[in-house]
Design a protein around this nucleic acid. Structure first.
Lengths: 230, 230
DNA sequence: ACAAAAGTGTTCTCCTTACACCCATGA
DNA sequence: TCATGGGTGTAAGGAGAACACTTTTGT
């Protein structure tokens, strides 16, 4: 290690992931129950220490893959949490990440450092260790503002999905209600959905039409941004 | 230091500040010329190593104050840059900060680690050390998107200022032009400006009206957000 | 046949945009 | 008095919001 750098004290650095999933009409966050001190028994965000030869994003992907068995998802840096007392063991920075997942797509697996891995409804979270409640609050802010500019809501749904499902997702996130007709017009106006047919009749009422993404248009919009004011 | 933490390797952590100022119709960024290796002679963002008993924001304020003689400005965390090779000395994370300054309000002072401290027009920057060009690019993105939602443009102007000055600032940042009348209507509609009188007649042409902020309304809007689509 | 949820089109209103003339000053 | 930039209001157009009836299915 370089001497010029060693004259300055170094903090530990961890990477923590706020993973949003959506299933059965519920927006949820993935948490792990810790086996070890500090906060043994508490629920916390999946996380781990940064290794010196990997980027933080690579560390986040490693954590997702090894600790929760989730791969290839939407991931972006959220914020760096840095309160000196946030970890009782010493000075630890947390570079946090924000992830969106089709929660139906993965079967969870608890690693050795955790007793349990579980989806928790975002509005009924358990007691959280460290400052993870604060990290989650920031992630929810990010989700709310991001959903207005990028079609990220779609990352959470497993296609094919129905228009009422999509509307319910947006309404959950933004805590509001939309007019069905205006919502339909707006979404279809984006040109990223393709009608694929009528739902197999296993619902209690009239089945809804099914849609999938036009991948091409979808990725255009992800970059260009949209203006989702409804 | 705690043994549980020491089993993991630790990176160095620095804090770097992208400081925007506005004077003489020019949006500028504050840079320092390095005295020391690596990148001696190159221009870089003001920055320094994080100390273990301070938050990153406190470190950023310390850097601003000691290295550039700037205090009490708008400051927020921008992003954490983490490419393993970004510093030739070893693994160094940079937690970067975004600052807006009334550049006329401060007289700059070079500290011992720098030959020179200077405002550079944001579109004609010199060769930059480390990955600071990348950091600045991210800061400009942030400035552009933030200016649409929060009345931050005002942080850059020294009151009292004129409507054409404000318009020019917005046009510089967003690289566009606005209709004078519509701009005036929009801004006044926010209710955060107070008319204070007519400029002393030292201009070459008809003097413009002068405005200051209504601090109360201004801070309301800073938090609530506005929708500045013009 | 009835209850429950889904599909669809039109009107009105308000916000956005486009646009032209008069005014104040310095030279 | 003339050239330059600053101040102001109105009219037309477009996007958003409000709104009701018909359709499909399961019971």
């Amino acid at each position: 290690m370089n001497q010029a750098l060693d004259q300055y004290p170094k903090p530990s650095v961890t990477v923590d992931c706020v993973i949003f999933g959506y299933a059965a009409g519920q927006l949820s966050i993935l948490l792990m129950q810790r086996n070890e001190a500090p906060f043994a028994g508490s629920w916390t965000l999946p996380g781990g220490f940064l290794q010196l030869d990997e980027t933080c994003e690579a560390a986040a992907k490693r954590v997702l893959s090894t600790k929760t068995n989730i791969n290839d998802v939407f991931l972006e840096q959220l914020y760096t949490f840095d309160r000196p007392a946030r970890d009782p063991r010493g000075r630890v920075l947390s570079v946090s990440y924000f992830a969106l997942v089709n929660s139906e797509q993965f079967s969870l697996a608890a690693g050795q450092a955790a007793r349990d891995v579980r989806w928790w409804p975002w509005e009924q979270l358990p007691e959280l260790g460290f400052d993870h409640a604060e990290i989650i609050a920031k992630a929810i802010d990010r989700l709310r503002s991001k959903v207005l500019w990028q079609p990220i809501g779609f990352e959470l749904l497993t296609p094919p999905f129905t228009m009422p499902e999509l509307q319910n997702l947006y309404e959950s996130i933004l805590k509001t209600t939309f007019d069905r007709r205006n919502f339909h017009k707006r979404i279809m106006g984006l040109g990223i959905l393709q009608h694929v047919g009528v739902r197999r009749a296993n619902e209690r009422r009239r089945p809804a039409d099914l849609f999938v993404f036009d991948e091409q248009q979808y990725h255009n919009l992800l970059q260009k941004g949209l203006e989702f004011k409804i």
